[in-house]
Design a protein around this nucleic acid. Structure first.
Lengths: 238, 238
DNA sequence: GACGATAGGTGTACGTCGTACACTTGTCAA
DNA sequence: TTGACAAGTGTACGACGTACACCTATCGTC
């Protein structure tokens, strides 16, 4: 069995210990630090030792995601489906902010793990319990997409609208080359208290997005919308 | 200069030729086929030759994305902002369906290229020209996120709601373990004419998503919504 | 026509990666 | 005591990105 050189007893590896160490390493050193070799080092073990607990790197990454998804608050029996979903998603969001690498890993995943399916299932059941039709819920889940995991839909963390850290020359160039972006970037003084690097209040933007969707869904539900209603020749599907 | 062994004259490489070959290779062999070595092979050249035209692999990938984004239809002078944005996004979507690997590349990108900024800018200007306030446009762009590039927001191509290719045992297990998913998956017979692997009408789901957002935005605009209106203690931000 | 600069293609080499495979070693049931 | 089994080790291979030194064809200048 593995023992530390300094005489201390090293507890044996386990799948769980491997996954937790990997999550911790990714949290502090970023996703690019996750290699079987580097991870094994942090566990004081030889690279191949990991393969006794994890089939390959892909399974390692899947397991890391399961750990992260497991941190999302469980559903609570909530009378109002909108508030319930909203709280759940915002809880997911705080988890994903703790593990910023998780998004890229999930996006590269070939298929959802059972843990992910279970989370998705519980969100769906919240909608159904709120009285939404299965048909409507289907479309809503597609429309929400990865937002249910608390992911912003931005592609680039440093938003193109970020006016931060621009030299006057760069700013002038932006103004000339991308007048729309410039106009929008200048449009609002941001709340200095809850700001991320981009200079935007990310929390506000996120809530704006999910509220836009959830309010729209509520309106569809109220008017008894059904996907078979719509005329496929219409410009809009709603 | 490089010449083909068979006596035929080989036209010299160029950044453009490299990028186009890379896009073609990714289209037919997938993103994992994109390595400097394999790409150089398809160009009949030694790996290091590519570095005379592209600084490194990251720049190669950026360039590939620029090629793809360049395929999106330019904006047309459209009186109705909603229809204009809708058409533009749907055009982007058909481009991205041709290059399914583009999404992952863009998501891994550190920063937007000028080409991406130019496209983003033109979408913003469409909104502004339609009379939306810069403030509203700001939030809308965040809310739309990567949807403006025509990306579905799904994490996994094979949606968890896909009932296809399940053995009866698997189906029974799904029903028991994930009743919500099962209920939603069973809820609607899909249009067999425009179906992707998932068994869902992806085109419909995509349009449902953007229409949900654009309709919501139109409503906010009509009632003169302003981000400074809302009370930050409210449950909803709208 | 000669010639040096330069752009474009080559060859070799290094460090990193995931992981196959054969091995030792510690533990425990019989 | 044994011997099966789970856990950790060591070596090795092929793929990757790319640094660096090297050729070589082309062309403007004299």
């Amino acid at each position: 069995m593995a023992k530390a050189d300094d005489g201390g007893q090293r507890q044996p590896l386990s799948r769980d210990r491997v996954l937790r160490a990997a999550v911790a390493l990714a949290d502090e050193a970023g996703l690019e630090a996750i290699s079987m070799r580097k991870l094994s080092q942090t566990l004081g073990v030889v690279p191949m030792a990991l393969y006794k607990h994890v089939a390959n790197k892909e399974e390692l990454l899947d397991g890391m995601i399961d750990v992260v998804v497991g941190e999302i608050e469980p559903a609570m029996g909530d009378s109002d489906w909108k508030a319930a979903v909203r709280r759940r998603i915002l809880s997911a969001r705080t988890v994903m902010l703790r593990h910023p690498w998780a998004r890229r890993v999930m996006e590269a995943q070939a298929a959802p793990t059972p843990v992910i399916l279970a989370y998705t299932d519980s969100v769906i059941r919240t909608f159904l319990a709120g009285g939404l039709s299965a048909d409507l819920v289907h479309h809503v889940m597609h429309a929400l997409g990865s937002r249910i995991f608390g992911f912003t839909q931005e592609l680039h963390e440093t938003a193109p609208t970020a006016p931060a850290d621009l030299t006057p020359e760069q700013a002038a160039y932006m103004m000339a080359a991308f007048p729309g972006i410039a106009a929008v970037a200048m449009s609002r003084p941001h709340d200095p208290n809850s700001v991320v690097g981009s200079g935007c209040d990310d929390e506000f933007e996120f809530e704006f997005g999910i509220d836009l969707m959830l309010d729209g869904v509520e309106r569809l539900q109220r008017k008894g919308w059904d996907s078979s209603d719509h005329d496929r020749e219409d410009a809009s599907v709603l």
